[in-house]
Design a protein around this nucleic acid. Structure first.
Length: 411
RNA sequence: GCGUCUGUCGUCAAGCGGUUAAGACCUCGGAUUGUGGUUCCGAUAUGCAUGGGUUCGAAUCCCAUCAGACGCCCCA
């Protein structure tokens, strides 16, 4: 027996029975994004590896160990692990900085990360995201967050927690890192292995370590003092305060989480996450923030930007299953030519219609009709002779024999 | 990369060393040659992820491999 070929670890088929939910997510996205003036952009699924190394940051796990990279004609290419870098690349390449600000873009599509799969995490997964370019003011941050919240509400997800934080600008962040390192230095040997690595690489990441012994260390008063201190500079503080003000005005409930740092290097000032309690340990449905230096770093004009991404699979796991839509009609007949003709006629009018292709018995056809359609369109000897159709409402069992024209007023 | 747990029909499963490998759902057929969704009958695993081993005897115990789930790390 030949060995079956299976899906690749961490990838999944999206089957017909779940596709309604995907369509639902996508329809709501189009609607909301239109309301806010966002245009969809579709960028390639693979890009030059260097884009991600420079864009996402080569100290990040995503770039270091999670990319699907391959060589082709001496070029190093990578399946996109996220889409901000790609959108920024396109923004620069297509001269979008010449457009009137803000430039508002949204996208959806598959992303690829070579990670160990678990609940809420797969190697190919789908993100829905937005990016807004050209606005420095925190109104942009607020609008983007508000839009995320409204989108989630439109899906029926109301009980999610919004967490925000400010990472400051590169300058004040550097100060903070130094202070943090100073105060943690005496404890360095007591920290877990991961934290010891993070100490040099990305001290901010230390803060959300889940190891109990590390947490205990961070609870120490002198360390808490540094963590809780408003390390950010005046300008950054003002930005953050304004953001909070706008969010309050828009009735967005949020909490400030000083420990919220995000894993991509490009963020500055505002970062935020939207979390659910019903997702297992991968509990963020949405993550994003401001990235004012990314466009410049990738060779474009200095352009401030904010954005976020949502994990579509995570959203779907929070939503109740949808019943698949029923056909308008199912033609029940043992006269295939006439059944075919009727089905086609109705299809050309925009109805969703199937007919029996396997010449099953009448009762079997009707049984099938009752499962998949709202109406059974019975076309037997009598109907054909009189050029009529018997229409049976499968929910109420009402049945009428009508002409083709009358049929349209029933379906 | 590390850790924990799990692999019995398309799906959900019972079985825990000797069974003819339950049952339910789905699917298909019949009761019912033009009336379904209710009902009733019937069909569907010589095989229990794969390969070894222990045993008179293995789906059941052991080892390895593979696959999956969950957790760590990280992230959506």
């Amino acid at each position: 027996m030949t060995k079956l070929i299976q899906v690749i670890k961490g990838t999944h088929d999206i089957l017909p029975q779940e596709i309604e939910l995907w369509h639902f997510l996508e329809e709501k996205a189009v609607k909301i994004f239109n309301e806010y003036g966002y245009k969809e952009i579709r960028t390639p699924i693979f890009e030059a590896t260097e884009l991600f190394a420079r864009g996402v940051g080569d100290t990040t796990d995503i770039v270091n160990k999670e990319m699907y990279t391959f060589e082709k004609s001496d070029r190093s290419l990578t399946l996109r692990p996220e889409n901000t870098a790609g959108v920024v690349r396109s923004f620069i390449e297509n001269g979008m900085s010449r457009l009137s600000s803000p430039v508002k873009l949204w996208y959806k599509g598959p992303m690829f990360r070579y990670e160990r799969p678990q609940k809420g995490r797969q190697r190919q997964f789908h993100q829905l995201g937005v990016e807004m370019f050209g606005i420095k003011d925190p109104t942009a941050d607020a609008e983007v967050i508000l839009m995320a919240v409204n989108y989630l509400k439109s899906l029926g997800l109301n009980d999610l927690d919004v967490e925000i934080n400010s990472l400051g600008c590169p300058k004040c962040r550097e100060n903070f890192k130094q202070k943090l390192k100073e105060v943690l230095k005496p404890e360095l040997n007591n920290l877990c292995e991961d934290c010891q690595n993070r100490y040099e690489k990305n001290p901010l990441r230390l803060l959300d370590c889940k190891v109990e012994s590390c947490k205990a260390i961070f609870e120490k008063p002198e360390i808490q003092k540094v963590i809780q201190s408003d390390f950010i500079c005046e300008e950054c503080k003002e930005h953050f305060d304004k953001l909070k003000l706008y969010l309050d005005k828009m009735h967005v409930k949020y909490s400030v989480n000083k420990l919220l740092v995000r894993g991509l290097d490009y963020y500055n000032r505002t970062v935020f996450e939207i979390k659910s309690n019903n997702l297992g340990s991968q509990n963020a449905v949405c993550g994003g923030g401001r990235y004012d230096s990314l466009v410049k770093n990738l060779g474009g004009e200095d352009t401030p930007a904010v954005g976020w991404a949502m994990g579509m699979e995570r959203l779907i796991s929070l939503l109740p299953a949808k019943e698949s839509k029923k056909l308008d009609g199912y033609v029940v007949s043992n006269y295939p030519a006439e059944a075919f003709e009727l089905a086609e006629e109705l299809r050309s009018l925009g109805y969703c219609v199937e007919f029996d292709l396997s010449n099953k018995k009448f009762t079997k056809q009707l049984e099938k009709a009752s499962k998949v359609a709202k109406f059974a369109l019975i076309l037997g000897e009598d109907e054909i002779k009189s050029n009529k159709i018997s229409v049976k409402n499968l929910a109420t069992s009402e049945q009428k024999t009508v002409s083709k024209n009358e049929l349209r007023s029933i379906l």
